[in-house]
């Protein structure tokens, strides 16, 4: 079952967050931007973990909500100058949540393999909406005005030099808030009920849980969080394109989850950093990054079954296992 890091784990994660926050003290802008990318993808993968690791739903259409969140900035641009982030972020969340609610309401009428196919197909439909209709601003993407830091006419103008640092810290803050929120959610009975659905959906229904609405709630919330991630992507890059909604991004988020560890809430964060790091290294060695990505996946699915969060030192693994249940009666 999915676990949340305990006291030591949380301490280690906090230390890692501080290390990321300290990057601007010594790293060049390139690495700050790379870290920002990893942070945004970590939000995205974390939002998908709510479906995969918590509720037990494997969706291949999650990138659509990421893209809708990013395009929210572009759509707001139609109303004039750069919107305040205090407006664009809630708008992104709302749009992504609405899209996820509509897709989820239909897709959750199916299960398993068919759920995968339906989410993928509806994700592709949203891809076409931004790819082919005037709504999206073109198949090749469009530059967007970065949401501003303004409130009641006061604006904090960020200089070009400061921007990588500011975006890094902002993205870090959003990721930490998202992680903390999900950790809290898992402690509520809503979170426990979702975990119960993953363990045994049929039993949850017969115990009196209307699992359809619980799953739809999780799907909508996960979509809204993906919208947050997409918004932060658009704000960091100042560019959005239909490719953000493409289904290979959903598959890559699943890869981050598996890479980091399916069994831990923080797994996708580790996975996202590993994914971005490996991608960067591969990009420096070869132009054929997809080859590297494909081979890495093969290694993970064939060998590294519990992800990075599941790696244990050999000495720890030899600790005595909990005593097995006494063999009393045979059926």
């Amino acid at each position: 079952m999915l676990t949340v890091a305990g006291r030591n784990g949380t301490f280690a994660l906090g230390a890692a967050a501080l290390a990321v926050a300290a990057l601007p003290l010594f790293a060049e802008a390139y690495y700050l931007e790379l870290a920002s990318t990893a942070l945004v993808l970590a939000m995205f993968a974390l939002s998908l973990q709510l479906l995969v690791g918590v509720t037990g739903l494997v969706s291949l259409g999650h990138a659509a909500f990421f893209g809708v969140g990013a395009y929210a900035i572009h759509l707001l641009g139609a109303f004039g100058a750069a919107p305040s982030v205090l407006l664009s972020l809630p708008a992104a969340v709302l749009l992504a949540a609405l899209a996820a609610f509509a897709v989820g309401a239909l897709a959750l009428r199916t299960r398993g393999f068919f759920f995968l196919m339906t989410t993928l197909a509806f994700g592709q439909m949203l891809f076409f909406v931004f790819h082919d209709t005037p709504l999206g601003g073109g198949a090749d993407g469009v530059f967007v005005a970065r949401p501003s830091f303004s409130l009641f006419g006061l604006e904090w103008v960020v200089s070009r030099q400061d921007r990588p640092t500011v975006m890094l810290l902002l993205n870090l803050g959003v990721l930490v808030a998202m992680y903390a929120g999900l950790a809290l959610l898992l402690r509520t009975m809503f979170g426990r009920a979702l975990l119960g659905i993953r363990a045994n959906e049929h039993r949850m229904r017969s115990m009196g849980f209307d699992t359809y609405w619980l799953q739809l709630g999780a799907f909508t919330l996960a979509g809204a969080l993906a919208g947050v991630a997409g918004h932060m992507w658009g704000m960091t890059q100042a560019f959005v394109s239909p490719e953000l909604l493409a289904w290979h991004r959903s598959a890559e988020a699943l890869l981050m989850i598996l890479l980091g560890g399916l069994g831990a809430l923080h797994g996708p964060i580790l996975g996202a950093f590993a994914f971005v790091g490996l991608g960067d290294i591969a990009g420096q060695i070869t132009e054929r990054q997809r080859l590297v990505e494909g081979l890495v996946i093969l290694v993970v699915v064939l060998g590294l079954r519990h992800g990075i969060a599941g790696i244990r030192l050999p000495a720890l693994r030899r600790l005595p296992a909990p005593a097995p249940a006494a063999k009393e009666a045979a059926p």
Binding site: A199, M204, R205, G208
Partner: peptide, 24 residues
């Protein structure tokens, strides 16, 4: 009615083949 409404309306049941939430 779907099964979850029975449970909410006060019908409790056990299963012949054990059916619990094993990881919890």
């Amino acid at each position: 009615w779907p099964s979850w409404r029975f449970a909410r309306a006060g019908v409790g049941r056990s299963f012949q083949r054990t059916n619990v939430l094993k990881p919890m």
